[in-house]
Amino acid sequence: MKVLVVDDSKLARLTLIKTLKEYEPSAEILEAENGAVAVEVFQAESPRVVFLDLTMPVMDGFEALERMMHINPKAQVVVVSADIQTQAQERVLALGAKLMVPKPINADKMLGVLQQLVF
């Protein structure tokens, strides 16, 4: 299973990958540090699941999400963001995100996410 982790923070990516691996040790992890790179990797690798940050340089998560959904409307994108405003949540869900999880990610949150995804 290919999983794309998009975040400009190395710490955020590491935390996420570490918690993910606890439940899915076999997952093949792809990483991207901004929206633009993420869209390229998404196009080339067609990951099953994308964990996407919102506040990033070059291209932010909102735009990356929109492009990914355009490339593959069935993509399972989980937005993991520090932006916990209700309006931000409504917006990403409207754009086609499967879920939105507030940062920082931890084991409980990860379990909740994985239970709602299709592998």
């Binding site: 923070s9 919102l54 990033m56 916990i84 309006q87 507030p102 940062k103």
Partner: peptide
Amino acid sequence: LRELMNIAMGNATASIADLLQAFGTMHI
């Protein structure tokens, strides 16, 4: 530090958004 600040700022923005009944744009 940047990531922690990002998380902290997310909380703050949400609090202010509550107060102002508006949506705040987050910056790096």
